[in-house]
Design a protein around this nucleic acid. Sequence first.
DNA 1: TTGTACGCGTTATCAT
DNA 2: ATGATAACGCGTACAA
Lengths: 369, 369
Amino acid sequence: MSSLVEVARAAGVAVSTASRVLSGSDHPISARTRARVIAAAEKLDYSPSAVARAMVSPHSRLVGVLVSDIDNPYFSVIARGVDDVASRAGYVTMLSNVDRRTGTEIERLQAMRDYRAAGVVFAGSGYVDDSRTPDLVDAVRRAREQGVHAVSLAVRDLGCPSVVVDNRAVAHQIADHLVSLGHRRIAFIEGPTGMTVTRHRREGFLARMREAGLEDSAQCLPGGFDYEAGRAATLRLLARPPLPDALIGANDEVAVGALSALRQARVDVPGEVSVAGMDDLRLAEFVGLTTVSLPLYEMGSLAARHIIDASSRPAPRAAATAATGAGGPDGSDSPDADADAGSERTATTVLSHRLTVRETTARRTGAGA
Amino acid sequence: MSSLVEVARAAGVAVSTASRVLSGSDHPISARTRARVIAAAEKLDYSPSAVARAMVSPHSRLVGVLVSDIDNPYFSVIARGVDDVASRAGYVTMLSNVDRRTGTEIERLQAMRDYRAAGVVFAGSGYVDDSRTPDLVDAVRRAREQGVHAVSLAVRDLGCPSVVVDNRAVAHQIADHLVSLGHRRIAFIEGPTGMTVTRHRREGFLARMREAGLEDSAQCLPGGFDYEAGRAATLRLLARPPLPDALIGANDEVAVGALSALRQARVDVPGEVSVAGMDDLRLAEFVGLTTVSLPLYEMGSLAARHIIDASSRPAPRAAATAATGAGGPDGSDSPDADADAGSERTATTVLSHRLTVRETTARRTGAGA
DNA sequence: TTGTACGCGTTATCAT
DNA sequence: ATGATAACGCGTACAA
């Protein structure tokens, strides 16, 4: 590894000249000089120090992603989306697992700020009542003031733009699918207590049941977001017959847990009971699970795109403007719509989802309730 | 965000003094001064620039992971392992997907070098005959000369330490399980053509078959590492009865693909045919797949640990020594074993795996071959 | 115990 | 068209 000064010396030119040709400046340079510098750089295996570059520029070419757990496919797809556009743009992705802990989120955001990240993507959901949220909001505000662009991939008032899906609509849609298949008694295995996404999905489910006049046959079970939670909740259901007509997991993994418990109990799916999830991770395809497909990859890539675009624009200095309206409640796309910088304090982009019917759901057969 | 000079000014001391108290130097500082500096730092919301730190130190506190695809659980577990130890040590993880392309691997390694990474973990397997490998080896050599520690998580001669499993032994073990269950005609769905891991796993499988005098009933099918490959290969098997007694996927996902094709064809598993995989991703547990558990998380965390430890040691200047011997062929642990720096050019740590029996394999019943 | 001054590698500004 | 030099923010050797 050699530095610019060494290259300049080897080429017999000034560092500034070497910098100009090597950093692709539009400054006029004679062909001869240019050639000498390039040759020297090549011979010395020169590669510019991104660290030194970050020192002089307002931010580095690093974009961060904060996920709950990268080993959860929901987040790894998002991370993939972020990294794909980051890499292509010459950026490098930073990753941190925060295990759904707001405190850790604050810490890791700080760590990324210390590297002068161009931006940070918050991939996880927040909590409904969380004493640390104000601290996080504050940390985000300071980060943004410093030029670190933040983007949230969940509905949580971080005071930054967000790219989300409407989780109420998502749950509403899967419930609708089941209802229109003739199912009446439907059980919903909820997500982790206190999470915003958990609340939204339950609300969507209950809303559809109410619309169908089925509020009395709706059943919500405490659960979680993992396989074990799905199994456990289903086991409880199995212990108190009769089984519901259908079962919805708060996400795919929960639904698969339910599937597993049902299979073990020799309950035919979808013959006796239909099962469905949400997210449409690859797992869902593997087991033939009916679910709602979420544009996870797009959320990640869009967030990264936003950060990179915003970072290349000259930094908006003094600006404090209002938010752009949110998209419709049922998953319509609403483009970012702002060329003039500073007009997007909290713009929300709502991406659409779609039902994906596979083999775990079927029309309700026989036996009345 | 404020810098050290601002803090120093606010505290009425010199930057060096402020630096000393804030960076936890052991330099003696009067209690009064210390307090003033800390107060000022607190009030100004001071956080040291990791970029500036990286400028003065030989490397940053960034550790990189190069994965084929983070959305593949095999790699996301590894990334989790890396990030857990990195975070705890105050480092930040950089992530790049390289899609199994050696050229991309070289590019991304360079990008991480540009950030003066403390080290880079190569998580993916290499190819048996790959024209770009020499270039990669060269890139790794230069990176290491510069102080970027490299660690490989697969058997590939990168000229750096590695933490691996013995994939021959892994395949041998799963084949052994099936053989000892009485199975004779066993099909093996191979991994992607040309990959080192593919070759090793096939060799392990064939070795066990040979030992059992079953070379003639061993069948290798071209496959891949994904669900679709498993399905396709199994569909081909289904088209040419009779089915083998058992079926091994080159990894769990392939085995699940096979399972899916079999279930669709109404073939009872494990009644009619046993199915097994390798890796033991969470997916395997979800579907009750018999497989071989690999210490993926440990590989990642050990690699990160190695990098961080090595980076905190004073950089070994002039040293070119021999390699430490590799571990045994059947998965015995062999500790890193070097306190004196420089003695570990290419030390290989072989981690052990273990068979995990679940519900997709059973003793061979009925019908002779 | 505290302060001064230099260097890390780059880009940008201001000469020449 | 090219060169000299000043930042950027930090750590540290050296001076006081």
